[in-house]
Amino acid sequence: MIAESINDRLSNIEGKFGVNYIDLTTGQEILCGNCTVFPASGGVMLMALVECFRAIETGRLDENMTTRFNRADYPDAGTDSFGVLKYLHDGIEITISDLCNLMITVSDNIAFNMLLDFLKIDNINETFRSLGYQNMRVNRKIYDFEQMKKGVQNYISVREMAAIFQRMYKGQLISEEASRRMIQLMIQHQRGTIIPHVLKEDMEVAHQTGFDDDMILDGGIVFADKPFVLVMAAADTNIRKAESIMRDITSICYRKACQN
C-alpha cells in the first residue's frame, strides 16, 4: 500500500524523481519514481564520511591530526556555498575529526574539499566498488570550476545510498563502532527542511542532504518505533515543489512506521 501512496503523490511529477524506502524491522524495500542515479551535490559527503572512517579504522588516517586551512588553496572559499569554514580566519588549524563534523553537521563544502585532499578520490571510489556500490562516484571536488566546465560530475544512487544506510543501521559498514559513530554524527545534521520537517521534534534522524540549482536530495535513517530508511532525490524539476512532495512522502512512510 505504501508504494501506491507514494506513487499517488508522484503521479504527475515532471523531471526525475527517485524514492527508496526500507522497513528496517522487516527488510521490506520499496523503490518508486523514474530514476535512481542523480548528480550527487551534498550526497557525495556521505561517501567522504565512509572513506574517512575506513581510513581511520585501518590506521591510514589519524582523526586527531591537524591541518591548516589556507584560503588560497580553495577558490570556492569566496563562493556562496554551504559551510562555516570559509568565514574563519585564514590559516586556522583544524583536526580531521573537526573537518568530518563540519562536513556532516553543516554540509561544509570546504571541509569536504579539504578531506578529499587526504582521502584521495581514487581511494573513495575504490572503497565503494569493493563494498559493491557501482553507481556512487566522486569525480571532482565541490565547486571545482575547471572540472565543472568539462562536465565532470559526482553521482549518487538512491538505491545504493539506502543500502549504505541499512548497512550502517545494522552496524555492518566498516565496523560496528564506525557505523555507530557515523550515525551519531549524521543525527546532528542541521538542515531539516525535508525529512525531519514533518516529524516530531525529538525524533532522531541520521541523514544527509544535498541541494543544487536543479537537484535536491535527502536520505537517512528515521528512528521511529519501527525505524526505516528513506532516500529521496529529484532533478530537472521545480525544486520547491519537489521539496513539498518529499515532505509528504516522509509523512506517508512515517505513518506506515506508526501502524500496527
Binding site: 500500500m1 501506491e4 501512496s5 507514494i6 499517488d8 503523490r9 514533518v198 513539498s244 515532505r247 509528504d248 512522502i249 509523512s251 506517508i252 505513518r255
Partner: peptide, 12 residues
C-alpha cells in the same frame, strides 16, 4: 475500492 491514498501538503 481505494482510488487514492496518500499525504498531500501534510494532509492524509
Amino acid at each position: 475500492d481505494v482510488w487514492l491514498e496518500t499525504v498531500f501538503h501534510g494532509c492524509y
